[in-house]
Design a binder for these strands. Sequence first.
DNA 1: CGCACATCCTGTGTGC
DNA 2: TGCACACAGGATGTGC
Length: 279
Amino acid sequence: MPELPEVEAVARALRPLVRGQRIRCLHVFHAIACKPQSPADVARLVEGRRVAEVFRRGKYLFLRLDRGLVEMHFRFDGQLIWFSGAKELLAKATAEADSIHVDLALEFGTGAMGFADQRHFGRLHAWETEAACEPLHRLGVDAFDRAFTAVLLHERASASKRPLKEFLLDQSRIAGIGNIYSSEALWHARLNPWQPANSLGRRESARLHKAIVYVLRRALECCQDPPPDFRDPKWWFQGLEAILRAYQREGLPCRRCRRPIQRVEQGGRSTYFCRHCQK
DNA sequence: CGCACATCCTGTGTGC
DNA sequence: TGCACACAGGATGTGC
């Protein structure tokens, strides 16, 4: 559930399921998912604790506990699965044929939250305090935070010589934008992905800011209609392709000028853009 | 400090 | 159909 809108939708759907609930125990199926922490570390910090709040920063999802913090990152394919209880969790997570790839799970009185990722890229960690959670403090301003303004974007862009696309992916500057929505925002703002971030003028920064917020808001609307279904592991956010204007549209006509969308490589990742509209 | 690059994994799609 | 290979919505640590 990679980028900000998807994680936000997950946070909203998860909140009513776990807020106020006490974590009875941690189930571990693949210890790699909490690496470099050990299952014992995580268990010690979460078992018996109550979930005070669910919140998101950038692409991270957090459970604030009455004491301590659970930090989750889904990377490419990670997802949450909800089970009615320990019995269903154990049955489905360990079944030989087409089992659900649950790495870790938190058992509550009302059900169990599975953290699943067949590629084992996603991570779930536990921290003694919020202050101890390093990943949280490495993040720049969240793209949905009120503090994320056109002026702030201009300031941060001015401090980076990198191409705009790579600048947007840097979570320590602005948190939450990934490979899809960086291409999308640049398309809406009509900016060239190779343009150095520090060459952005104030007007261009304002345009980019507006595009980022628009693209993420629009995607969040999509992600909530319908909202995440934690019961079906095959479920994924539907209909997002419909709102995409550049991403994964190589060779297809630009929605503004009808010329073909290009795919180029930047920093080892695909960037999609319109050479004609985005100068 | 900034940057290029390898690395962590497994499934799927594509072209031959 | 079988196979090899590129590719995937990400972050981090390394060496330069």
